[in-house]
Nucleic acid binder design. Structure first.
Lengths: 120, 120
DNA sequence: ATAATATATGAATAATTGCTCATATGAACA
DNA sequence: TGTTCATATGAGCAATTATTCATATATTAT
């Protein structure tokens, strides 16, 4: 059952058509905005934020990260998976041990800007 | 029931103590990282991303945004509330109509960096 | 005062998600 | 080959969340 247009918008007399047209013109494509939300979703968890921040400093194995953050190996491994899928980290294998490091140059800038916001 | 330390960390022989100490030293305070995750959580929804991007261009009333995004007034109002709580938008009232605009200079930079990541 | 209308909000619900637990995989070594 | 250990992963659960629906609030106009 689809909604009729009138049911989901306010009265036409109040809508600022010119503004809406101008804004619509400048909006990035739907898909980009969706992907952008997906990226920020990855940053929207304090465990992943901590992992990423730790990797700013040095590559680390899963075990190190679990110890550093006082969390289970499994929890870290699950989160690393999310970071990997977002192409934010890369792996280097050495025997049994897998070392992870950051695979992106934008992340640090994004984080610094974010901190600027919360610290003002 | 709390876990014993040994149950939540890997074997001590594999942990890279020096790396962990160095990283721990450089990590921002726990609370900052938590707040940072909270900020990114706000960005981690495509409806809110669209609202913010629209506001880059012009202030708009709730009604305009609902029309632009083809969503219900209620849905937009709920999301605007989230943005307001994160101190990302500010309101200007004119009669019955409430105009929202961006209340932050960092957001645009954060978004641009984010797009750079997904577009590479 | 009453009606109309822009916005806000509480309750309910469906979907998503972060973690735990158990177990699988894969590499080193006895 | 069998054991050990680092990492990965599937299932399940509790918590969070985005939206809808119904309704409240606030302002303007009649």
């Amino acid at each position: 059952m689809t909604l009729k247009r009138d049911e989901i918008r306010c009265e036409a007399s109040i809508i600022h058509e010119e503004v809406i047209d101008k804004v619509r013109e400048k909006m990035p494509p739907e898909e980009s905005l969706y992907d952008l939300a997906e990226l920020f979703k990855v940053f929207g968890d304090s465990t992943r934020i901590k992992i990423i921040w730790a990797l700013f400093e040095s590559e680390m194995c899963v075990c190190d990260i679990a110890y550093l953050l006082n969390m289970s190996q499994s929890a870290i491994s699950h989160q690393i998976r999310v970071l990997k899928q977002a192409r934010l980290v890369k792996r280097r294998k050495e025997g049994k041990v897998v070392y992870y490091s950051l695979d992106d140059k934008h992340v640090e800038l994004i984080f610094k800007q974010g901190l600027s916001h919360i610290n003002e």
